[in-house]
Structure formats: C-alpha cells, structure tokens
C-alpha cells in the first residue's frame, strides 16, 4: 500500500468524524486483510483503535516509525515486570 493511500484514508477518517467508525468497520477491515506489509497493518490497527476510541492524538505516533528510545522504554518495562515476577 502506498503511503499516499494511507494518508488519504487518514484524511477521510479525520474529516468525517464519527462517521469514520463505520468506515473502519467495513473498508479498513478489507485493507487489513489485504495489506501485506507490517507497517500498513500496524497503521490500520492503530488507526482503527484511535478512531474507535474517539481520539486522534495518537495518530502521529502510529504513523511515525517507532523511536528506538520508546521501544527501549517498553522493553525495559517488560523486563522489569518479568524480573519482579520470577526474580532476577
């Protein structure tokens, strides 16, 4: 999927407001199944969740490639949970 189409999808969803929920429930489902690159699927998961939960503020983060620092924060959080759980 071209990034332009992704942007168009986002623009459509954002412009139609709550009507976007219906779009996500139909069109994005087809996109999700058909999409064959992980970025697009991640985007659609995030897009659906963002729109369905009524907030668009997370969208820039879902479009952007994840920062190494953010991934490291989450990895550290997971490691902390595992250490607490089973002992180091």
């Amino acid at each position: 999927m071209k990034l332009g189409l992704v942007r168009d999808t986002a623009a459509t969803l954002l412009s139609v407001g709550t009507a976007g929920v219906g779009f996500v429930g139909l069109g994005a489902k087809k996109f999700f199944i058909a999409a064959d690159d992980s970025f697009t699927k991640k985007f659609l998961v995030g897009l659906a969740a963002t729109v369905l939960t009524g907030g668009v503020a997370l969208l820039p983060y879902l479009v952007a490639k994840p920062g190494q620092e953010t991934q490291a924060d989450l990895a550290a959080a997971r490691q902390s949970s595992v250490n607490n759980r089973y002992g180091v």
């Binding site: 998961v45 995030g46 997370l58 983060y61 879902l62 994840p66 920062g67 953010t70 991934q71 989450l74």
Partner: peptide, 10 residues
C-alpha cells in the same frame, strides 16, 4: 503517548 502507541502496535 509514544509509549502507548508503540505498545498498541506491538
């Protein structure tokens, strides 16, 4: 927000 978004995509 970045962490929440990354967690979601993971």
């Amino acid at each position: 927000g970045k962490r929440a978004a990354q967690w979601l995509t993971d």
